[in-house]
Nucleic acid binder design. Structure first.
Length: 496
RNA sequence: GGCCCGAUGGUCAAGUGGUCAAGACGGGGGCCUCUCACGCCCCAAUCGGGAGUUCGACUCUCCCUCGGGUCACCA
């Protein structure tokens, strides 16, 4: 029944030239941190070995198609630097790379399996999940005992059917995983899983085996949620007589539920952050990649900051951990701040500009100077606007702000300071840090007080905030002389 | 519930029979200082429990407990 000529042609295309890995997402329009990590490790294994990284789209679930979903995958991989050598968009020797475009292949192989006695047609009604409506457990599926002749006849007559894998009833199966080691299960625990659905499309489990084989995949990297179905894969490979690839199962990425405090798997359903969500929140791509790489994998030393390229050099399956890892936004935030501080000032300014301009419309305010103040104080870009809004206008504030114990200031004293500061500032010729600072320190010296006694009132008058990025001198410089003088005047009026 | 996997501080984790059990984040304290940050220093905090094996267990074995996963014509 199967077209052997065609199968031979397919098999003849399989590359046998070193490591080949693949990222095989289903297009849901959402790449959460767990998906990203799987893609990253998969890419890392290929690049570390100088092999090929392939992108394959698993869209066999016709009921869950989301338009534009594939674009999210392309965009995310590209932004993260996870370039692929073969895929729907770039082609390759073992295409097509979209499963629905390969539908003919699966059918042939399913038929081949029936031929070999490792699969059979099942005409039973679809079993509703949830309710256990079946009158028989799968192990006693009546179709399993149907003769080939009868099954073929019913199929030929147009009766709908699915093709199920015929699991051995006795014995056990042991498969090997690169991170979990050997895992053995009793064959009687294995269900006669569906290989080909009644719509002619393969199930995930079947399509995976067929495609991984036909694409010459040497290392199958996937989430640990597939661990329990792995023995079925081995049985399938053996039934076909194919070489079994190296399996690399990665533990799940968990998250602590904000409401219940319970640890659960990350999911779209609960609104857990996707890659795009994180970027929108002001996280930098390399920081996210770096953090995710270390979430469930350790290079072993004390170093934590690595570029993608460095990761590719040192990545080793040996460091992949078996237990689930909890996503910690605080640690990601630290990585992000670390990357921000390491940026060239101009690069940071460019990245920060849109966020600065969201709060600072005044074109007289120089973005580069503001960015310089912000760089060491920014953990994520989205924090920026609220830190610099005072540049546009002094917000409403309480005069109590002038009272600061450490600087030894109070309201009357501040008023006096500002009154005397006004003419001095107006007299400054060249409006730069040194000159401004000179005026302030000179007054402090004259008064015989600490600089803070003078700086604090000025800064409050200029910003109306207790906490600001940068000190009185830097802010005065950026504001410019006239704006600075105007704000000091306004503050004097306010306190008088 | 059956089956599978896992278990070092709150989190990420090193560790592979003999260590005062790394490091990082977060937390606490301090220094620096024109606020805040940055930077620097210090502190608290971990081998889930019980049996074994061994001269000696975080490291090996078993049991318990607790986590997680899986039991779809979804991936």
């Amino acid at each position: 029944m199967p077209d052997m000529k065609r199968l031979e042609e397919l098999e003849s295309r399989i590359p046998h030239d070193g490591v080949r890995t693949r990222f095989a997402p289903s297009p849901t329009g959402y790449m959460h941190v767990g998906n990203l990590r799987t893609a990253l490790y998969t890419w890392l294994i290929a690049r570390h070995a100088g092999g090929k990284f392939i992108l394959r789209i698993e869209d066999t679930d016709q009921g869950r198609l989301v338009k534009g979903a594939v674009d999210v995958i392309y965009r995310t991989l590209a932004e993260c630097g996870l370039d692929h050598d073969e895929g729907p968009d770039v082609g390759g020797p073992v295409g097509p790379y979209i499963q629905t475009e390969r539908r003919g292949f699966y059918k042939e192989y399913a038929e081949l399996l029936i031929e070999k006695g490792h699969a059979y047609r099942c005409f039973c009604e679809k079993s509703e999940s949830g309710e256990d409506s079946g009158d028989f457990s799968r192990s006693e599926d009546p179709c399993r005992a149907l003769s080939r002749e009868e099954a073929d006849a019913r199929a030929a007559a147009g009766e709908p059917y699915v093709i199920r894998q015929r699991m051995p009833r006795e014995g056990s199966t042991t498969f090997h995983d690169a991170v979990y080691g050997a895992i053995t299960v009793e064959n009687k625990e294995l269900e006669d899983q569906i290989l080909l659905k009644s719509d002619g499309l393969p199930t995930y489990n079947f399509a995976n085996v067929i495609d991984d084989h036909l694409m010459g995949i040497t290392h199958v990297v996937r989430g640990a949620e597939y661990l329990s179905s792995a023995p079925k894969y081995d049985l399938l490979y053996r039934a076909f007589g194919w070489e079994i690839p190296t399996y690399v199962h990665c533990s799940s990425v968990m998250v602590t539920d904000a409401e219940t405090g319970a640890v659960r798997k990350m999911s779209k359903r609960h609104g857990d952050p996707s890659y795009e969500d994180l970027i929108a929140e002001g996280y930098l791509t390399p920081a996210v990649v770096n953090y995710v790489a270390l979430l469930g994998w350790s290079p072993g030393g004390e170093r934590e900051v690595y570029s993608l390229r460095e990761l590719a050099e040192i990545f080793d399956i040996h460091g992949v951990s078996k237990s689930p890892a909890v996503f910690d936004i605080a640690k990601l935030t630290w990585f992000n701040a670390e990357y921000i501080r390491a940026m060239a000032p101009e690069a940071f300014a460019r990245a920060a500009e849109p966020y600065i301009r969201r709060a600072v419309r005044d074109p007289a305010i120089d973005v580069l100077q503001v960015a310089a103040l912000l760089q060491p104080r920014t953990e994520k870009l989205s924090d920026i606007p609220e830190k610099v809004d005072f540049f546009d206008a002094v917000p409403e504030y309480d005069a109590e702000l002038y009272v600061h114990k450490k600087s030894k200031t109070d309201i009357p004293g501040s008023l006096d300071t500002l009154r005397r500061l006004l003419p001095a500032l107006e007299a400054v010729e060249s409006w730069d840090d040194e000159s401004i600072l000179a005026v302030l320190t000179a007054m402090a010296e004259t008064d015989g007080v600490k600089n803070a006694r003078i700086m604090w009132p000025l800064r409050i008058a200029l910003t109306g905030r207790a906490v600001t990025p940068g000190g009185a001198v830097e802010i005065a410089r950026i504001l410019g002389k006239s704006q600075c003088v105007a704000r000091v005047r306004a503050a004097i009026d306010k306190l008088s």
